[in-house]
Design a protein around this nucleic acid. Structure first.
Lengths: 219, 219
DNA sequence: ATATTAATTAAATAGTTTATTAATATTGCC
DNA sequence: GGCAATATTAATAAACTATTTAATTAATAT
């Protein structure tokens, strides 16, 4: 009933520099990632983010100049490591090997370890007017998406995959199975029982590869 | 450079009841579906919707009382027919038949014919605070999602599907392949070549079923 | 010690946007 | 001709929101 009901961190700090080291900057980044990923850029106010992080809006301008600056910092903070690790997965030893399994495992592992990122991507890439749409498409999707199609073609050339499959459609299906469990979790997780915890993600990855290669038919 | 640059319909109507029949109500519903599905409820203003539909904000209150009323009307208008048709698909003759193919074909056909619906769902179900989250989960996902799992179990009992597959995971994979091409189109469609036009959707549906049942392995 | 720099809050500002309502005008119908 | 239906224009007003300024305290360097 009192006024201070919705407060998450009720530190009641007074003005002035606090003693000891501060982790407000990091907390702001974490909270902002969470909020932006669920409500989108326009859907969250700096006031909300600050309050949630146990700080004041002025801190956001102190550390990031403005809201846009905060957003860009969040992107870099969240996507940077992922992109470089993804690149490492792709530039693997290419000796006549079907690279799809390696790709799927690495990809799903990455998504599992960074649960807010899929939502952030959905928010900002799937909706027109999303900030990082081009950035994303250039630096990520082109490597992830057409990358998968190239890997499919290659596996076909190696005689590992059926030749009658359309590479685009096969890549689409594989990508769907790898990505949708994450972005669709709020709805799918409600009616289907599966875990996306990083320590269990190999179960899903192996299932996916098994299904993709062998199919579900009996006999 | 002039003020009236972004106008879509430049009818320049004058006040007063226009001659002939009016389709403004329908146009408002269509535009609102499009806008809500791409920007979410909070992301669109009634002014925008009205302008886009060639009308004024006051008309929205005339027909729907307020913004929330418009939203609910949109939901009913867009989802109602889908839900009933989906129910019809599910209550099909159950004579010892594997119903999965029928389900997948009907499901993808429905999504293809109503392109705004997947986005609307993504917007309002995937993000916390989405209006129709519970409504949707109760009336739709429970039938669609766990429905698929039940169909998988049944197909296993009939000896059509491998017994070693986890029904939840198999259902998840199938659902992923059926849904993701639609919701992920803005990103996937950029790098992979596939059509979601209703008249081509059977290509994708047959591919999906083929892959699901037979797998992608050569030999 | 003292001055300067860093980190923080409180409070004000100012700007935009937004949903909604009131008043008014034109057409259709009995 | 008059009431009901369908529009527009314009006003309201309320809520928010991003950002800035000033004040306050702690840390650090001199």
């Amino acid at each position: 009933m009192s006024k201070k009901t919705r407060r998450t961190r009720q530190v009641e700090r007074t003005p002035g520099r606090p003693s000891g080291d501060s982790d407000i900057r990091d907390r702001l980044l974490e909270i902002a990632l969470r909020e932006f990923s669920t409500h989108g850029f326009r859907g969250v106010s700096v006031t909300t983010i600050a309050k949630e992080a146990g700080a004041t809006p002025a801190m956001i301008h102190y550390y990031f100049a403005n809201k846009q600056g905060l957003y860009e910092a969040v992107l870099q903070h969240a996507l940077g490591p992922i992109l470089s690790r993804l690149e490492a997965v792709r530039s693997a030893p290419p000796e006549g090997e079907d690279l799809l399994p390696r790709f799927v495992r690495g990809y799903m592992q990455l998504l599992a370890e960074n649960p807010a990122v899929p939502s952030l991507i959905v928010r900002d890439v799937l909706s027109p007017g999303g900030q990082m749409r081009e950035t994303f498409l250039n630096g990520f999707a082109s490597r992830g998406g057409s990358g998968v199609r190239d890997l499919v073609k290659r596996a076909q050339a190696l005689g590992r995959l059926r030749d009658d499959l359309d590479p685009d459609l096969a890549a689409l299906s594989l990508l769907s199975m790898a990505v949708f469990p994450f972005v669709g979790r709020p709805v799918a997780g409600q009616v289907l029982d599966y875990s996306l915890a990083p320590e269990h993600i190999d179960v899903l990855a192996e299932h996916t590869l098994n299904l993709f290669y062998n199919g579900a038919s009996a006999s």
